[in-house]
Nucleic acid binder design. Structure first.
Lengths: 287, 287
DNA sequence: ATGATCGAAGAAAATAATTTGCATGAGAGG
DNA sequence: CCTCTCATGCAAATTATTTTCTTCGATCAT
């Protein structure tokens, strides 16, 4: 599905000529997507047949097949190679921000481990109480989004951004409870401490964080999210979109697992909103 | 840039043969992206030259050019035609959620009006005080994200999800203040009331909401966000991603306009985080 | 009503791109 | 030093695409 990843993976096993082709692809993407096989071959100083063979090797039926795969990926998956916004005009800034956001979602998706997701959904759906922890503007937003998503499905959940509170909640938690915490940097040591504390009592701990970080090491289950950020300090971090995406995936999985309870709870909430707010029942659940 | 939109726009002005081509494109996208000009022509019962002319008409240089544009769009822009997730397996659910999120960003971007953005950024960057309003899980998240993004840039801002508080804040606001409010449904009448109240005092009001809705009508400046939602009640609304994207675009624009103040403020915040939390100064700003 | 004009659409030819088959040469292994 | 294998390019064959030319049908003015 993702040609670009395939090229990078296989790159070591390619012949010299094929490596030259790969380098052009990775380096000047726009050219590669627009070029004919002859142009591409010339630029790489190889013959067209070599290009065709290269495409076959990467699992495409033909060069045009390959170009289509390339173009599909191009839309999102390659933009991180691109420099920052061209100007500070609204249109350029919007394109930059939105591209980066889509890309964060793309990269998160690529690295997502279904096996871990399955375990996470399983534990959450069977939890008697869920504690969602996260501090600092970004992670606290994720924690409250977890609450906001899961309470609708009938889960018992509270969110906290307060270190002291988190520690007390973790200490008060019981065997069938679950603690799920977010840390963009992976260096929220207070959160790691909560995890350690909880694990001593046999409580499931789930981290949304950078892989191989202190927080990741402290948790039982880790949903790893490693998104490279550019160095534009003015643009809000696009990593938030990746985290939010993970929250939604988790919430959907829990909903499917507790389908009956979710349906009933959602219907109740809906009913209240319709009665007390307005009559249009085709609206989203709670503004 | 977006072939798909172009086709839908021009559809009415196409000749019968060209409309048949358009219909195949819109209907069986995967086929169209993979097909050669001959196959496509055959399927539409037209001759290849007609297909070439069709491509030219849509602003492409050639058929292959067209196919590349099509493939680029395909990755995100067409999935909203697709049905729901194939199964409730983690991999399928993740793909469904992330595709819908990317798509929401895509559609938001397509409809975004740079002129309005420019005005919004102008008002916000010159505001003496900003009030961010939004209620219900979704819009309250957006309001606090606005605060979370803008305070870092030196803006004076508070967020509120509480109707009564909003009304009082709006009443207390002064001439150079700005009220920015979010409503996914567009039917948050309390918010509309705040806007009306504020406008009477000559205060700028900005709405992030559905176009042509009560809230939109009550505001001076409207950033319209109209995202069709599927009817899967279990999947969290992907519209959140669109709203969050708008928040980020706005924040970036304000940052560029108040570049000096933003830089100083961001640096201060960074410094505090580094001193009090950890030493790695390549980390994101605040977990 | 009839001819003129325009544009859509296809046929066929020309052109361009792509693939295949085959030959060559370099390098590894015996 | 031979032989085998593999990468690669050349040229031919195939296939795809575009251009040109022509026809057909609709519309409009006379």
């Amino acid at each position: 599905m993702d040609i670009f990843a395939t090229i990078q993976e296989e790159r070591a096993q390619l012949s010299p000529s094929e490596q030259r082709i790969a380098d052009i692809l990775l380096g000047d993407f726009d050219f590669a997507v627009g070029a004919s096989i002859i142009e591409l071959a010339e630029r790489a100083s190889v013959s067209p047949p070599t290009v065709t063979r290269f495409c076959r090797r990467l699992g495409c039926q033909s060069f045009s097949d390959f170009k289509v795969s390339l173009a599909k990926t191009a839309f999102v998956g390659v933009r991180y190679l691109n420099p920052e916004a061209k100007s500070t005009e609204p249109a350029d800034v919007a394109e930059d921000v939105i591209t980066k956001a889509q890309n964060a979602l793309f990269m998160m998706h690529r690295a997502l481990d279904p096996v871990v997701l399955d375990k996470v959904a399983d534990r959450l759906s069977r939890a008697e109480m869920i504690y969602a922890f996260g501090s600092g503007g970004n992670s606290s937003m994720i924690a409250s989004e977890l609450q906001n998503r899961l309470f609708r499905l009938g889960s018992r959940i509270t969110a906290s951004a307060d270190y002291h509170m988190q520690l007390m909640l973790a200490a008060a938690a019981r065997t069938n409870d679950v603690i799920i915490g977010s840390s963009f940097s992976g260096r929220n040591l207070e959160l790691a401490r909560c995890f350690a504390l909880a694990q001593d009592s046999g409580i499931t701990t789930i981290a949304l964080t950078q892989s191989e970080s202190p927080v990741a090491r402290a948790a039982e289950l880790v949903i790893a999210i490693d998104i490279p950020e550019g160095d534009n300090i003015f643009r809000p971090t696009s990593t938030r979109f990746a985290y939010l995406g993970v929250v939604d995936v988790i919430a959907s999985l829990v909903a499917y697992r507790n389908r009956k309870l979710s349906t009933v709870t959602l219907r109740h909430i809906k009913q209240q909103l319709v009665e007390h707010r307005d009559e249009d029942d085709r609206q989203v659940l709670g503004d």
